[in-house]
Structure formats: structure tokens, C-alpha cells
Amino acid sequence: MKKVRLLIFLLILVWNLGNFIQALALLNHIFLFAFPVLKPTYHLVCHQQPDKLIHIFGTSTLLCARCTGIYLGGLAGAFALIFTGRKLSLPTKYLLYSSLPMFLDVGFVMLGVYSYSKLIALLTGLLLGSVGIVYLTELIEKFLSQNRSFTE
């Protein structure tokens, strides 16, 4: 179980590092060559509107603040799950509750109740990502236990 959770954490870590590829290119210029490939890849899952990207050390993320929040939340959740030995079983309603702030934020911004805030988008994304990863891990583990040939 721990191996699966560690693998999930590592995969999400790689995905998150890709999001910060421009910042990584500051550490090693070789990462900049991945930029032309990664930008369209991340465009598949995010609109990448320039005003909604997170700016850090003079660079920007490839995903918007909300998506960055979701995946960072997923990363934090996946990290915490490595140290939790328990079998996961969370009612679906919690997934809906955790997505509610995000959908409310999207709705309020679209209705003009308040203007878009990167911080709110990031935080609501973090909430959904951290809860969502528990479901995802539960489902992956259930799938693997149903198909033992995958793990044995």
C-alpha cells in the first residue's frame, strides 16, 4: 500500500515540478528546453490565461492559480497519505463539500460579485486537491486490490 502511495506522490511531484519549469530553469538552464513541450502539454488541462498565472522569482507557472492549487493540494495530500497506513474510505459527500468553495468562487467571479483573486483561487483549489487525492488514492488502491495480478 505504501509503495503505491509513494508512487502516486512521486508522479504528482513530477507534474507539479513541470508546472514550475520556468523557475527550475533558473537553477539549471537545461530545463528551459522542456518549456516549449510542457507549455502545450499543460495547456491541455488549463486555459493558461496570463493574468491568472502565479508569478514567482520573475517567472510564471504553466498552470493558473486554481489549477496550481489543485495539484499542490494533491501533492500535500499524497505526501500525508504516505504516513497514513489506514485503508481509505471517505464518503462522496466530502468530495462535493470540498469542491463547493471552488465552484462558488468561479460563480461569484463570473457573476461579478467580486473580482478574480489568485489567492482565493489557489486556496479553494488547494482544498479540492487535498481532499480529491484521498478519493483518487482510495480508488487506485481498490482497483489494484481487485486486480492483484497488477501488483504481484
Binding site: 520556468q22 530553469a25 533558473l26 538552464h29 528551459l32 518549456f35 520573475g58 510564471s60
Partner: peptide
């Protein structure tokens, strides 16, 4: 973006 990027 790349023009302003601090690389060689």
C-alpha cells in the same frame, strides 16, 4: 517571456 528570461 523568453527574451526577458534570465538565461544565457
Amino acid at each position: 517571456m523568453l527574451e526577458t528570461f534570465p538565461v544565457d
